[in-house]
Design a binder for these strands. Structure first.
Length: 738
DNA sequence: CTAATATTTATTTTT
DNA sequence: TAAATATTAG
């Protein structure tokens, strides 16, 4: 890869780059767009470029602003830069849009009416607050769900619109056109609570950069070079923020892949990357097209598929090196989602027998509910797996409760937190007490915590509630004093104990309770990693840590969205049916544009695979209550025939009742594929018995695996059958009359 | 305040 | 269908 071995290279790491990568690293001045296809060494370019800026003396660590979308990406980049430099680098402005904005906003909080201790609200708090605002404005929440209003507010914030900037054209007319007022009231409440939601972090900072020349100047003085990862996923306000920061020096390098833009529904505007050249005149564009990840057939399949999209800058992935060979991409037609799960399970077993690591296998689905069938099958087969995504640690109720205690301790004006814990554990402070608290707080314009103090000293409440409230007020005063003397770790531990919160879970007899106590212990342990309570709270708000420790050799199960940025030797892509993928609802909402985004999702899925991609679709799928027969996804027809091996399970082929089955001719099983015999047994395909062909108790039956047995009971299509090896519960279609 | 009952709604979710 | 949420009754 090195062009001139005779000339000594002052920067040896450059020699490890291919020419395009090298160009992307060495073009330090002026705007640069790096179009980095999947698996083309994007992260390497980004980190090398950062290190190069430092090592050439172009910039000090604090003069580079590097933005990512996820904390994971930021962490990875930080580690790789440290590895290249040879030591951890201090003072980097490297992080997510939100964490960088939070950092900037804390410096200038007072300019937007906040204090630097402001709380960052999560989605749950946001919604609760908005509901309160809407109730106060006498909006009928049944007619106008707060959820929808929240979505609209978020859309406005993504588009950099403060309440006064919302024009009728941007207003959907929600709540009889009162959306804008509600938005304004919501923003006022946030300031009163000394709080900001996620959108505010960018909104406030962008407003500051626009309005306050000295803030902008300071930023320009500081940031000489800007690096942006995943540029295709930026929304309008992120784009504006970047443009404001970059307008002076114009040293902005954006890395992205328009073909992997899959977050438009979160406000991402693919147009940002498509019109980069117009936004930054004189911009240079470098394309990274050498793919170091996947085999030629996988790349050919992915390329052919994505070529069906119109709005793209255009790139072709070429296999790097000698990976021109490889297995064809398999396309399997199965009877239903259960057969699909069995086929995938059997294939995984076979891979495992051949010595493949389970950690190198992933099942990528379009929608979360699809994982269930696979989970059940993997459990049955005893194959370890992990589901990535889903519940996050900091979203669990016990963690959020504990966090609320800490928030009240740290920032007594945090009414949302106070409200959450005032009666957790139960203190006899119900609706009536809460209403009184709110009344007092509103009348005197004070936070709830302070109102609690007033009420405890007055005789507005009597008996048990009054004593409980007084106790809570005294407790918080004591914990706050303790915080200064004994530090945050000891204080939080004491607070959770003395408040009775831990005791509440100890008393709880539900099966989850012990796990929750474990989580609480883990939480207290995590606090020790931070110097201050404020630092910890910010971490939790912004770094909703979601990556489970990759312990053990397990199959990964996740959505296609969650898979972006990951890679595996073997990737299963089930559920390629019209309606599911491409998703009907997405199509209904977004039309042709949405179809292209669905296709990009398919592209992302395929390009996750290094060596093997197995796509499948099921002719029947149960949607809610009833079964529905499915048509194969149009994406299947867009795959290039010469790189594809198609197979149709006999259960589908035997029943060419609909158009679905006739699209692919049956190939049957027991055929050979790349020289290996696929045993029919591995597919566990059996003809379905006709509807009338029911079993009754006492019937003798035969099963492929368990042999002969006797039917013990019948429950719909499920049978309990006594085999010599024991009683098994199975579906009637897997046994035949003996 | 809790428990039973009715109602709703089911795509993706980087922060 | 089934889970989550909202409402109502006790």
């Amino acid at each position: 890869m090195t062009g001139h071995p005779a000339i000594p290279e002052p920067y040896p790491y450059l020699a490890r780059l291919n020419p395009e990568q090298r160009e992307a690293v060495e073009t330090l001045d002026g705007p640069l767009l790096v179009l980095a296809g999947a698996g083309t060494g994007k992260t390497r370019v980004l980190t090398t470029r950062f290190a190069h800026l430092l090592l050439t003396g172009r910039a000090h660590p604090g003069q580079v602003l590097a933005v990512t979308f996820t904390n994971k990406a930021a962490r990875e980049m930080r580690e790789r830069i440290a590895a290249m430099i040879g030591r951890p680098v201090e003072g980097l402005w490297l992080g997510t849009f939100h964490s960088l904005c939070a950092r900037m906003l804390r410096r200038h909080a007072e300019r937007v009416g906040l204090r630097s201790t402001f709380t960052i609200l999560d989605t749950d708090d946001q919604l609760r607050l908005l509901k309160q605002v809407m109730e106060a404005e006498r909006i009928d929440l049944k007619r106008w769900p707060a959820q929808a209003m929240m979505a609209e507010i978020q859309r406005w914030k993504d588009r950099a619109l403060i309440p006064t900037a919302v024009t009728p054209a941007e207003d959907s007319g929600y709540a009889n056109g009162r959306g804008r007022d509600l938005y304004a009231a919501y923003q006022r409440r946030l300031i009163e609570l000394n709080a900001a939601d996620f959108g505010d972090l960018l909104l406030h900072v962008t407003e500051l950069l626009k309005r306050e020349p000295d803030v902008l100047e300071e930023a320009h003085r500081r940031f000489r070079y800007i690096l942006v990862d995943e540029y295709q996923d930026t929304n309008l306000i992120q784009y504006l923020w970047l443009r404001l920061l970059a307008q002076k020096h114009r040293n902005i390098c954006c890395v992205g892949d328009d073909d992997q833009s899959i977050y438009s529904w979160r406000g991402a505007e693919i147009e940002n990357i498509l019109r980069f050249e117009r936004d930054f005149p004189g911009a240079k564009i470098v394309r990274l097209e050498r793919n170091y990840r996947s085999t030629a057939p996988i790349l050919a399949a992915a390329s052919a598929l994505i070529a069906h999209n119109e709005g793209r800058l255009g790139k072709t992935l070429r296999p790097a090196g000698a990976s021109a060979e490889g297995e064809k991409v398999e396309v399997q037609a199965l009877w239903d989602s259960e057969e699909e799960a069995r086929a995938v399970g059997a294939r995984i077993e076979a891979l495992r027998r051949d010595g493949h690591a389970l950690a190198e296998i992933a099942i990528l689905v379009r929608a979360g509910f699809q994982t269930r069938a696979f989970e059940e099958r993997l459990i049955t087969l005893g194959i370890p797996y992990r589901v990535i995504g889903g519940l996050r640690f900091y979203e669990r109720a016990e963690i959020r409760d504990a966090m609320a205690y800490m928030r009240v301790l740290h920032q007594p004006a945090d009414d949302l937190a106070f409200e959450r814990i005032v009666n957790v554990p139960k203190r006899g402070l119900g609706d009536a007490a809460l209403r009184l608290l709110h009344q007092t707080a509103r009348r005197e314009s004070i936070p709830l915590a302070l109102a609690a103090d007033r009420i405890a000293q007055s005789d507005a409440l009597k008996g048990r509630p009054r004593a409980a409230l007084a106790q809570l007020v005294r407790d918080f005063a004591r914990w706050r004093a303790m915080l200064d003397r004994e530090g945050h770790v000891a204080t939080v531990a004491a607070m959770l104990d003395e408040s009775g919160y831990t005791e509440m879970w100890r008393q709880d007899r539900s099966p989850e309770a012990p796990g929750r106590l474990d989580n609480l212990r883990e939480l207290v342990r995590a606090i020790a990693d931070f110097e201050t309570l404020g630092g910890f709270l910010e971490h939790v708000a912004l770094v909703m840590e979601n990556d489970q420790v990759a312990e053990g050799d397990r199959v990964s199960l996740m959505t296609l969205h969650a898979a972006k940025g990951l890679e595996f030797d073997t990737v299963f892509l089930p559920g390629w049916e019209e309606g599911l993928f491409p998703n009907q609802r997405a199509l209904d909402e977004g039309g042709a544009k949405a179809l292209e985004e669905e296709r990009r999702l398919a592209y992302v899925g395929l390009t996750r695979a290094r060596r093997r991609a197995i796509v499948s679709w099921a002719a029947n799928r149960r949607i809610y209550a009833n079964w529905q027969s499915c048509i194969p996804s149009r994406f299947l027809a867009e795959l290039p025939e010469e790189h594809i091996a198609r197979a149709t399970a006999s259960s589908v082929a035997a029943r060419p009742v609909d158009a679905a089955a006739s699209v692919f001719p049956a190939v049957g099983f027991g055929g050979t594929h790349r020289g290996r015999v696929i045993e029919a047994g591995a597919w566990e395909v059996a003809p379905r018995p006709a509807r009338a062909d029911r079993f009754s108790v006492g019937d003798r039956v035969f099963h492929q695996k368990f042999g002969y047995g006797t039917v013990q009971s019948v429950d719909g299509d499920k049978l309990d059958v006594a085999f010599p090896t024991g009683v098994k519960r199975l579906l009637d279609r897997f046994v035949e009359r003996a």
